[in-house]
Design a protein around this nucleic acid. Structure first.
Lengths: 237, 237
DNA sequence: CATTGGTCCATTCTACAGAATCCCTTGCGG
DNA sequence: CCGCAAGGGATTCTGTAGAATGGACCAATG
């Protein structure tokens, strides 16, 4: 199971923990580590070719992010990723993203927004032809928009929180993706592009209310979509 | 400096990290550790009479909470607690508490709310006479209200996030408290009690909008008060 | 069903390696 | 002769490894 991806880590001293955190996050994102799975430090240490000390530290950090839970003297297990969790995280994310949009409204350089709008429309126009390329593009634009907003909110702490939530959400989405197969998701991606356009247009018009409502709808529809994808294909425990 | 409080920890194996986290949190809350201060693992290890491994792990956990920042190969420093940080955290907290109120509206047992309302009014009535007793009572009621709301929101994740933020906020408040001395804060406490009453009444009337607006005002006024208290007394770096 | 022994593994300790910083020296310019 | 900047070495502290400790779970036995 874990042997499929050896994933050795050769980071400079002091950055190993961080590298391991990222790699483990990716493992969860891409379904190599499943919910409920027990993580054994020694195994991970072997796999990453480091001692178990940095592994342990990485696990503590992951527990802080909320990806795994740590039980004293019992180690780490990957958190359940069910429809309930998706809804919960999305609810929180919605509240924060909307706040960020309100704060950011009128503070983002219009040039950036224009450029983004152009690319989004181009993406939304193409109906799901050549897959993976478009998926990558969509995700990049998504990231760019949300980062732009978080930056412009002028609230460092909020930005940091949003980033954490984005990571969590990505974990959920990627698990669902794997379960569900890809073909439906192309549709969702173009839908998302349209939603993004509405948000960007709201921001361009300096209309905080509209933009924040669009953001709310955007996240809600993501929530509905991905939580459904999860329930559809997972036999919950 | 640190010698004033030896704080030895004698926890059963497996809970030491947790114990250290709590103790360090308390140290920050109570101003024994000041913003910008550099935390040396060996010192802390001596102080708690453990090796520096669990100390390191505790620091990683604290960094996850956001109380300290970790620089690779450079160790931990206690985060700046200035007016800016208070405002940022409060902004985030406001967004989440309001969301929680909206979700919780109509789902809290009225009996509980009634009881709380009675106690709050009793507290608000007494004008700042016997101090510490009232402070303790006020904090207890505050905690009870926010917990009630978080529980009733039905969102475990949201509840967990709110708890983290409450911890952070408490850290800020206690630092400000120490700087400012106590006498003004009694006034603020009765003010808070009034604000709480409005929230409770909104909830009793099943009026999510009013309740959430009251919550928003509540947190905003706390933000204004405490951030002012901090700027007033701290010579920021 | 309670007990006990065994095994696995999380946790903690000790020791060491490497990074960052500090301080002292040394060389240059005033 | 004094001040200042640059270099280098010592010190201090972080990060990692590997060993030791003891808790949790399982299975076999009474």
């Amino acid at each position: 199971m874990t042997a499929t991806v050896p994933s050795p880590v050769s980071s400079p001293r002091g950055l190993r923990r961080e590298a391991i955190v990222e790699s483990l996050l990716a493992d969860v994102f891409q379904g190599r580590l499943r919910a409920g799975q027990h993580l054994v430090t020694q195994e991970l240490a072997d796999r990453y070719a480091v001692s178990h000390t940095p592994i342990r530290e990485a696990l503590i950090a992951l527990a802080g992010i909320g990806i795994i839970t740590l039980a004293p003297n019992r180690g780490a297990i990957v958190r359940q990723v069910g429809a309930k969790e998706v809804r919960e995280v999305c609810q929180v994310r919605k509240a924060l993203e909307c706040e960020a949009v309100r704060l950011a409204s009128g503070r983002i350089p219009p040039a950036e927004l224009q450029a983004l709008a152009v690319e989004l429309k181009k993406l939304a126009g193409r109906t799901g032809a050549n897959g993976l390329r478009q998926v990558a593009k969509a995700r990049e634009l998504d990231s760019r928009l949300h980062d732009l907003i978080a930056d412009a909110s002028g609230n460092q702490f909020l930005k940091q929180e949003l980033n954490r939530l984005k990571l969590l959400f990505r974990a959920f989405r990627d698990v669902a993706w794997e379960h569900d197969g890809a073909h439906n998701d192309f549709h969702r991606l173009t839908e998302e592009a349209y939603e993004h356009v509405v948000i960007v247009e709201g921001l361009l018009a300096n209309d905080a209310k509209t933009a924040s409502r669009a953001m709310s709808r955007h996240i809600r529809s993501g929530m509905v979509y991905w939580s459904r994808a999860l329930t559809a294909s997972t036999k919950q425990m």
